[in-house]
């Protein structure tokens, strides 16, 4: 049974490179025959004494058959490091992914836009400060799925209060549109219950747009 607890460095060689030296160092490493296999962002906020963000590159030397792991701290807000996409073109997608997931800016990257998340997405999902379930799930409960007859189900507002929203923002923290979207089905159902022109505000049909009358 070979197992020794508490070892810190248990893998291939690891080196730390200052962000200002990264581009020059990368060129030197490439000339020595190292090729980039992977590059990932890392939120080091929970790792003791390692700053806030890091870029971690995995390098492979096909002739020596060795790997090294390069850590580049990304200081500042937004965290910034130089891009190595011009040194190793393979870094293009991985750097975009690290930008997308951690908000790390790669200076000199030819096309630093989001790659996995939609362009208009706010926040950086793999940061530790970005909790799971923080974003409202886009599924909106539809009135037609709820039992409307009396005595069979709680009132929409009561049931709404019981739902565990998994850290989603309260209504007053949300934007108007989002709050309206979430309220909409309940509001419509309530309206229908009140009997105001039941035909036009039936919970089964979408709310008609306001008509402007001459």
């Amino acid at each position: 049974m070979s197992r020794s607890a508490g070892r810190l460095d248990t893998t291939d060689e690891q080196i730390w490179v200052e962000p200002g030296e990264w581009a020059a160092r990368a060129r030197g490493l490439k000339e020595e025959g190292w090729s980039l296999t992977d590059l990932a962002g890392l939120d080091t906020i929970g790792l003791h004494g390692r700053g806030a963000f890091e870029v971690v590159a995995q390098l492979l030397h096909p002739e020596l058959k060795r790997r090294i792991m390069v850590h580049v701290p990304a200081p500042g807000e937004p965290p910034t490091v130089p891009s190595v996409a011009d040194v190793w073109p393979v870094a293009d997608f991985p750097e975009r992914e690290a930008y997308d997931m951690f908000g790390i800016r790669f200076e000199g990257h030819p096309n630093l836009v989001r790659i996995l998340m939609p362009d208009e997405w706010e926040g950086y999902p793999l940061r530790k400060s970005y909790g799971v379930g923080k974003v409202a799930i886009e599924f909106i409960p539809q009135p037609m799925l709820q039992i409307q007859s009396a005595g069979q189900s709680p009132k929409p507002h009561e049931s709404d209060a019981d739902v565990d929203r998994l850290g989603q923002p309260e209504e007053d923290e949300m934007g108007d549109h989002e709050a309206a979207m979430r309220r909409a089905p309940f509001a419509r159902a309530a309206q229908a219950e009140a009997g105001e022109d039941a035909a036009s505000v039936s919970p089964l049909t979408p709310t008609p747009k306001e008509e402007t009358r001459p």
Binding site: A5, R7, L8, D9, T11, D12, D38
Partner: peptide
């Protein structure tokens, strides 16, 4: 798991 970084392929 002891603290550290590892890459395996």
């Amino acid at each position: 798991v002891p603290a550290g970084d590892a890459y395996a392929a």
